[in-house]
Design a protein around this nucleic acid. Structure first.
Lengths: 340, 340
DNA sequence: GTGAAAGCGCTAACAG
DNA sequence: CTGTTAGCGCTTTCAC
């Protein structure tokens, strides 16, 4: 099933068939229609390999990810597809399992397949070694960043996300706000904390307890840290958490300590991981990194680079706040059916 | 950068270079080495498009999924890659967002790209319309199944999974076992329930409460259903849940009702969704669908089909049990540090 | 307006 | 042993 068969059936030459199907060259409408019909009748599908070979473009990109759960890379990929799919570009997904050998293998496979570009994505945004040197195709790092400043890296603006969370809590009248987060070695943890502290400072306040409580990204640590805060900060009326799991842990511990969320203590998480945030009691207000939008931008930037307009440096993309029950202002009437 | 350049640098003809790099035809070792060196020096990478065009095989497969979270499709893809990657096959990932239009679009794009085969995967295993008729390449449904019995569908053996869970509970001495699960319209929910009931019947028992409690796949329903069970079944000593979120809900409700898990009530979930099961209090015993293995089998079956040995019908793959705290036999000493 | 021919990069068949 | 040639399916000049 090639264009030759279509041409034969339509009674035209191979070249004419090509022109008819691609709308090039001035053909008689009748001819075009005849070829179209023939193609339809045969169920003709152009061979993208042959096309790519000739064009030197495969209309294909590679997505290399180290995020084995897909928690971050899937939304990024969806966004990228939105941007790329318009141009009918397909995506090779390569999950490197945090293994440099495997990653290199994927890279060379992608290059052999003549992808037009590569998006590198991950689970954390801490700068990582560039995926390769002097590659023949452009690379964009999304929800990951390269140590090479000549590379283009797109990451969420964690610092602003932290500020967003705290400003929201302040706006609902909270004044004694603690911060529970993950390991300090994570850039994201430090940035979120810094943003939170900056927002507090702007209001003439400090973090309840003085310092962020760095620990693990787990519910367990959320519970422990909540106990610490409740014990050491008598007037505690809010906690901003470095991710949603922590926030769930905090919510449970607060409730089990006999205090109300959000009545006594308001809560804001980070990530907007639906399955966690929505089933938290009460449903969790949280910062959304807009990963899909980030992916979309990555796709656009990659397209631009492919077309000869490369970018570079680290670019921050805005986070946004998703407000749910856990940060309802105290003044509000209790909503029916919230919690148990 | 083509094989022509390599040949020129090595001072041989194009054909010779090809043979040297592919180890075909009896060439003098010295020649082979010379060509190898030249290729290395130039950083030559064969053009997979040209190869595929000639060979009629692209060494590429498509993975069409309706699982937007990647919860099920990512493990399946990892497994498939294991099976396919050995043959250096790459995977186009297409996320159809449950949209038939989009799916059809992806299908035709994949066919244009001359993929050698397609894996269809999803979020649920209820039979779905075949992805297309008389496709030129083999298709395998994995964690999804086709209504056409001529198609090959691979799904977890949910019924056996349910039985596994209940037999485990029975083996730890539980005798009054309730079942909380998702909507009855889900095949998976019905099968898991049936397996559980069969295992109970084999022991001369019945489900506590008589019937499975069908509802939603949410923690909220888990909590509600637990309350119902606790109230209506005085001697309740175990609950098998249709997924891990339900089990978490049940765990919370049981604890909040003043009973111990697993001391008073043992719990088994389904899915082994780490983020849920591991942060449950206590950590959750659960049925694992071995999705990665399922993906591996899908990859193997697809390879077989590509090589002319197609399969058909629905094949069930075994589930396994991951034992954690929530089903610890009552006789055991309490483990230190478990729960709060 | 349409057809014929060249060539994208590669492999395989056939000469030498 | 190595070189030459044809052709995978397609688009794109350039003739007619």
């Amino acid at each position: 099933m090639t264009i030759r068969d279509v041409a034969r059936l339509a009674g035209v030459s191979l070249g004419t068939a090509s022109k008819a199907l691609n709308g090039r060259g001035g053909l008689r409408p009748a001819t075009i229609e005849r070829v179209r019909q023939a193609a339809l009748q045969l169920g003709y599908q152009p061979n993208a390999l042959a096309r790519g070979l000739l064009a030197g473009r495969s209309l294909t990109v590679g997505l290399i990810t180290t995020d084995s759960f897909g928690r971050f890379s899937i939304p990024v990929m969806q966004g990228a597809e939105d941007a790329l799919g318009q141009g009918r570009i397909s995506v090779f997904l390569c999950e490197s399992r945090d293994d440099r050998i495997r990653e290199r293998h994927y890279l060379s496979t992608l290059l052999e397949r003549r992808v037009d570009g590569i998006i590198v994505t991950g689970r954390r945004q801490d700068p990582r070694e560039p995926i390769g040197q002097d590659l023949p195709v452009p690379v964009v790092y999304a929800m990951a960043s390269s140590t090479d400043p000549a590379d283009l890296s797109l990451v969420p603006d964690d610092e602003d996300g932290g500020a967003l969370a705290v400003r929201h809590l302040l706006s609902t009248g909270r004044v004694s706000i603690g911060h529970v987060t993950g390991p300090q070695r994570f850039t994201a943890a430090r940035l979120r904390a810094r943003g939170a502290q900056a927002a507090l400072a702007a209001a003439g306040l400090e973090l309840a307890g003085g310092e962020p409580l760095y620990g693990e990204w787990s519910e367990e640590w959320g519970r422990q840290a909540a106990d610490v805060l409740l014990r050491s900060v008598p007037g505690l009326d809010a906690v901003f958490c470095g991710n949603d799991q922590l926030a769930r842990g905090v919510a449970d511990a607060v409730r089990e300590a006999g205090r109300q969320v959000p009545g006594d203590v308001a809560l804001v998480g980070f990530d907007n991981w639906e399955v966690i945030a929505a089933s938290c009691r009460p449903p969790l207000t949280t910062v959304d990194m807009n990963l899909q939008e980030l992916g979309r931008v990555a796709g656009q930037r990659l397209l631009a680079a492919i077309e000869g307009r490369p970018g570079s440096g680290q670019q921050l993309l805005p986070c946004s706040l998703v407000v749910r029950e856990s940060s309802r202002p105290r003044a509000w009437p209790a909503a029916a059916g919230a919690g148990r």
